[in-house]
Design a protein around this nucleic acid. Structure first.
Lengths: 228, 228
DNA sequence: CGACGAGTTGAACTTTGTCAAGCTTCGTGG
DNA sequence: CCACGAAGCTTGACAAAGTTCAACTCGTCG
């Protein structure tokens, strides 16, 4: 039987969900799910994706990023159409999450059921973070805040090393996520670089002064709230 | 047995949820639930409230408004702490939603269970609307978009008349919801007024040219997506 | 070698925020 | 009943933040 870490599916040890059935590969830019369709019940094993609302006039808003260990779609409302699309940002590997979801329905596996619920809770938290960024923060703060969020989430699944991680996001994806123009995202990054706070380039990020960055972004750890 | 409209709890006919037990009254500005506490399982019968994240340095972001018929907290995760607070914006009357939630768990009442799930779905939709406003829209667009959203939601529970409704929001509440400064919200409202598009004042709003407003805000009806 | 595209920079412009002053409204106390 | 002060709403002028457009760099690929 599966044993999960107490935080969420994302935080379960990778070896647990990498062996789920029906592995599939998706090319970068491919839709995993279009808006208003039923979302597949799948888990991301490798690669990055995003939830994304494209409103007609070529403006699009990225609602959040999906990282290895994350659920595609909504765990608790699998039967309702997704109000957003899910798009692969890199080459992607996913597996079926059905065994997990079905096992969670079994009254015996309370821990798994709890992990599923915590996953939904985490989704909410991430969405609120996103809202706070867009509604309250300046460009500089938003960039740092998002990077810290990604850093924490990737840490859960062992994808960071020494405050450094791979971030396969093009500037325009970043811009769509932060509600800023590409140019301005670049400016903010540039300044953070010259301030010696972080080192971004070529698909990787290094947090040079983590405490100072947390200060700038008013960051509060997610695991704090998730632990209960 | 309760019969609900096919959209959500909000859209159920008011006479159905006004008779739920344990009515309570709350003063304006009172907290219905503080952040990180368990949310009460209650329904709003009269008055407005909001979900609201107050981050230390006196910036606060309103995540969304709660109107008559709305659930306080999250229907699907009643056992996890709310990541935001709920605050009354006017004098408020609430009732216990327990009978509804318990009835929904009964396998006989599939329609009610569906309504509960649609309520959660609607919450998501509203949150995404809010994200799109904050991330993609200009001040003018945001104001109009929010007003159209409120108009539609209030329409569901019979609180509109001829494109006119009561909106008991002070400018600073509006500002916190839209991620704008009070002054700028006023500017936007003022211009909409002089453009003859809407008439705001003294707690009521009138949509003078609905189609034009929908155009400005790129509004798409919620019931469209909810009907499925 | 040149053309292309992604990433970066600079400068003008637009949108939004800030500050300060004026205007209501409303409740209070003389 | 009226004057007063306080608080909230509104407006104007200026400052700051962000956007747009265009030019420039620098690898990569033909």
């Amino acid at each position: 039987m599966l044993l999960l870490a107490p935080i969420s599916l994302s935080a379960a040890r990778p070896e647990l969900w990498q062996d789920l059935p029906d592995p599939q590969h998706h090319a970068s830019q491919q839709d995993l799910c279009t808006a208003d369709a039923l979302s597949p019940s799948r888990l991301i094993v490798a690669g990055w994706a995003c939830r994304c609302c494209s409103h007609a006039d070529k403006r699009r808003q990225i609602l959040g990023f999906l990282l290895p260990g994350d659920f595609v779609g909504r765990v608790l409302l699998p039967d309702l159409p997704l109000p957003y699309g899910v798009v692969a940002l890199t080459a992607l590997k996913t597996v079926s999450a059905r065994p997990l979801v079905e096992a969670a329905a079994n009254p015996d596996s309370a821990a798994l059921a709890r992990a599923v619920r915590l996953t939904a809770h985490l989704d909410d938290l991430l969405l609120f973070n996103q809202l706070m960024r867009l509604g309250q923060q300046t460009a500089r703060e938003r960039v740092v805040h998002l990077i810290l969020e990604l850093h924490e989430r990737l840490g859960w699944v062992g994808l960071t090393r020494d405050d450094r991680f791979a971030m396969p996001l093009t500037p325009d994806v970043l811009a769509d996520a932060l509600g800023l123009s590409v140019v301005h995202v670049n400016r903010a990054l540039q300044q953070l670089r010259t301030d010696g706070l972080l080192d971004v380039g070529d698909g990787t990020v290094a947090l040079l002064k983590p405490e100072q960055l947390q200060d700038i972004a008013k960051w509060t750890s997610l695991s704090g709230t998730l632990k209960q």
